[in-house]
Write a protein that binds this DNA or RNA. Sequence first.
RNA 1: GCUCCCGUAGUCUAGUCCGGUCAAGGAUUCGGCGCCUUCGACGCCGUAACGCGGGUUCGAAUCCCGCCGGGAGCACCA
Length: 512
Amino acid sequence: MPELEDRLASLGGPEAGRPKEERAATGEFPELPGARHGAVVLRLAPFPNGALHIGHGRLLYVNDYYRQKYGGRILLVFDDTIGSEEKRAEPEFFDLIRGDCELAGVRPDAVFYKSDRVPLFYPWARRVIERGGAYVCTCAADLLRERRAAGAACPERSQTVEETLDGWDRMLGNAYGPGEAVLRLRTDLSDPDPAFRDRVLFRISHLEHPRVGRKYSVWPMLEFSWAVDDVELGVTHVLRGKELVIEDRMQRFIWDLLGVSGPPFLHWGLLRVREAKVAKSKANREVRSGLYDGWADPRTWSLRSLDRRGISLEALRTFILSFGMSLADIEVAAETLYAENRKRIDPVAVRRAFVAAPVRLEVDGYPFDLAEVDLPNHPDRPELGRRTVAAGPAFFLAHSDLADHAGGEVRLKDLVNVRLPVEVPPPGGVLRATFASRENRRLPRLQWVGVAGAVPVDLLGVDGDHAPGVAERSVRELDPGTIVQFERVGFARVERTWAPGSEPVRLAFGHP
RNA sequence: GCUCCCGUAGUCUAGUCCGGUCAAGGAUUCGGCGCCUUCGACGCCGUAACGCGGGUUCGAAUCCCGCCGGGAGCACCA
């Protein structure tokens, strides 16, 4: 492999251009060590087994922040090695993830697939072996694990370079089945960190890969593939979550062994959104089973589900960048994201009336001249226009509103005051109330929808529930994708999949 | 258990490297008041924090030591 030898030589020694011990400052966003404007190359490396969610948002936006800051490039590198029986790459996610990046406004400058690059890793492995840095181990997985924990060597650890090369060739020559042999890095069995002792570099798998089928049976582990690709692809800085710190050590160990230099690493801490129970495997299962409404189901907390709910991904960007590069593990309430989104959509979302779980309210003595009323589309923005809505004498009101105020006097918002009876029927029932007065008094204000103009609405909730309700007629004229505010309920977005004019009008709830 | 990381108000964050201008700033939440005919917006007001204990120093959120607490890794996953 003389070519590789030359390439390695040209890449410089371990100290060449390697910055001092880098560490994410607790400050906002530290300078990237050694970065030159226009010469920064970053990478996103998702595994294609699900849609991108809020956690990936940090990956996208932090990398994009630095791309903009330094005029750099972002590579999207699908980390689609063979995975495992439980964690497999799946074909539909390649395009889906690219779409998610677009949606998030983080367009990669180039796209690569690890599965195209497998043959590239083999000569590097051979070089590591020749330097005495690895050995072929045929221990069973659990035995290997036990010995690692105990700091005990397996008999094969002492094999010579020639023996290892021979074993490696037999691995490549399909002499072993899955689980029968691995190539292990020779680190130090007394390393204080048990996780770092002789980690596996390559293993054998006969699983079918969605892109390359069964073309390869010897697959690299993540750390080795990145030790190669961060160099081969010219990545200048690796920004990733701190759960991957041990991979830094692995990569550096391999680079030092081969006498090449690689990029510095920067990390951020764990980010949890309290309401988002991010269980990708569960989401995967429920999407597949049909329980979830695809990858835009609100319960997945995927980027596309946020978009569906009318949560601007620019609001998500601001939200995520507000955490800086802190290494602290944080848990934040979704409300903080909602507050950020509200700033953006409140000024532009038109107001509409919606009533969930409606009860029909007939008002005795209702004034004849108030069959319809004219209302502004936005209380503070007259330029957004007005609309006319049908009013009484028959209305729909939310069952919960009526129950809260049974027996009292209330004001139908923007309309008149009525006196409610003590007994409230369940949703779908009918109730008689009496007209009280017209003047605007300080009474509890209830939202209403005039029966004459009511259209049925299906409102998708954050828990995936479908709340049936009614809304004023003008919601039927909304374009798919429009974000509205249902007064006293919250913001919602007209589903893009809704066929205009059809009933019920379908929307997805965003947040209060 | 071992390794690494992190501890500033309910939550997130600025400040910590290079000690004084920090009787600790911002955002969000919560409470109150005002206002627009929304539980939404806006305005005003308010509650609320340097994990604990030692040390160094004229002076410590900031430096040192020891505890305590939280998280992650310890896969032939990524």
